[in-house]
Amino acid sequence: MVPDTDAITVNGRAARGAVWFIRVVVALVWLQGAGWKRPPDFGESTGTGLYRYTRYAVEHPVFGPWKVIVREIVLPNFTVFGWAVLLLEAALGGFLLLGLATRFWGLVGAAQAVAIGLSAANAPREFGGTYWLLVVANLAVFATAAGRVGGLDGVLRPAWLSADRRWYRWLVRAS
């Protein structure tokens, strides 16, 4: 077996329960988020849904360069962007719920939360702190390797460590 050079310490039953709880709640938030991104036009024809939230980046900008990116790249290709968001958030929710490749998905989730925050944090009736809390929650999932507690990472990681295959090496890093 390859020595595990990336062991994570979570002491005590209560702490492990908290790590599991954080992962599951973050997963449910992403699954819920994926649920209201409705193809095929993602609200573009009615100015609702994902389209409305994406336009917030232009109408109520948080960060100037992000406004330009959304206006010049995202909105003109909105259907492609909508599909990417739906698939990404669905995958985030599903894989975090099962605790599979959790550290990888924690980082992806943090990046996605930053993107959402840069779009919607200054929008009317939005509490910007929500998005930054979502960033922090996803980083906590990454930092604690939360899939090793009550997740598939914990079940499969010993086998990934014991076999010298490229895919397994990636999964070890991702878990």
């Binding site: 995958a91 929710g93 598939l152």
Partner: peptide, 21 residues
């Protein structure tokens, strides 16, 4: 809905890894 997509996808990949590892 979108949530089902995520759950189904993760179950598919997770079960495959459990079977093949």
């Amino acid at each position: 809905r979108g949530g089902n997509l995520g759950v189904f996808l993760a179950l598919g990949v997770g079960l495959a890894l459990l079977a093949l590892t």
